[in-house]
């Protein structure tokens, strides 16, 4: 734990050395989020609600999404880069330290632009999403579970690169896909797509279930969310450990 704190402190120090760019990035990210909310407001303005989704629930969805993304991609910024780092041999310096590689790797870098999300999400929730005590508690728990799913999913994709090769592109595509699907209401998807969102691209756990829980708590759904998060986290940690055995320190690509 001491190492985690020290590592994150250093990561923040580094991000903070360029303050001007830090605030610029944060502002830009928030503007980006607002554009998407504008899209939904325009749509609802024309067609009323969409399968029970209105502007208020979209705001809640964005609050959860940006909070979780801020945690997963802003605070633990290396989560999306594991595959690429493995291919380029960048795990070497981490592996020579007496620490748990995955934990250290994840806490080693923060991404300033996505920290904007981490500010934006809670602001959105507390101003526009009806923050009662109960809702706030579920929002926090749900966002944490959601962030865990995101991180675990990205680590899993990175471990996949270690295990089966490639340059880490599948991480990028998977990352884009899970974020895109997560930024739309789960209820608009049906059939095979919905099944996919509970499994291969776990967007349902990122926004679908947490948002549903904040609006209407249900113990079974909550258990499903936590269980899903725990399962994928475990799977990711194990795959990464297994992947390290196949780690080739970039040798695959530097050798003829």
């Amino acid at each position: 734990m001491r190492i985690v704190l020290a590592s994150m402190r250093t990561a923040f120090l580094e991000a903070w050395t360029n303050r001007r760019s830090f605030w610029l990035q944060v502002t830009m990210m928030m503007a980006n989020d607002l554009v998407w909310i504008a899209f939904w407001v325009l749509l609802f303005n024309k067609v009323g609600d969409v399968r029970g989704w209105d502007a208020r629930r979209i705001v809640l969805l964005y609050a959860v999404l940006t909070t979780a993304a801020g945690l997963a991609l802003g605070l633990l910024a290396n989560s999306r880069r594991i595959g690429r780092m493995a291919v380029e041999g960048e795990l070497d310096p981490v592996l020579t330290l007496p620490v748990r590689p995955l934990v250290y790797l994840l806490t080693k870098r923060v991404d300033t632009s996505l920290l904007g999300d981490l500010i934006f999400g809670p602001v959105l929730f507390f101003t526009l999403a009806g923050p009662t005590v109960e809702r706030t508690a579920i929002y926090i728990a749900g966002s944490l579970a959601s962030a865990a799913v995101l991180v675990a999913f990205l680590v899993l994709l990175g471990a996949l690169t270690l295990l089966i090769g490639g340059k880490g592109e599948q991480s990028d595509l998977g990352f884009q896909a899970v974020l895109i699907f997560s930024s739309y209401p789960l209820d608009i998807f049906g059939g095979a797509t919905k099944f996919m969102l509970y499994t291969a691209i776990p967007a349902a756990f990122v926004t679908g279930l947490p948002v549903r829980l904040v609006d209407e708590f249900h113990a079974g759904t909550f258990a499903l969310l936590l269980g899903g998060a725990a399962f994928i986290s475990l799977l990711a940690a194990m795959s990464f450990k297994l992947g390290l055995r196949r780690y080739s320190s970039g040798a695959l690509w530097t050798r003829a």
Binding site: L43, V47, G48, D49, V50, R51, K167, E169, D172, L173, Q176, A177, I180, F181, Y184, D187, I188, F189, G190, T193
Partner: peptide, 29 residues
């Protein structure tokens, strides 16, 4: 080539989402 091939795939993901979204919206209207 890989990056070149992946970008259109990205569009397919977006189209999957929009087909679902607009399907629901237009049906509801």
């Amino acid at each position: 080539p890989i990056e070149f091939a992946l970008r259109p795939l990205f569009l397919v993901v977006i189209l999957m989402v929009y087909e679902s979204l607009w399907g629901v919206v237009i049906e509801g209207a």
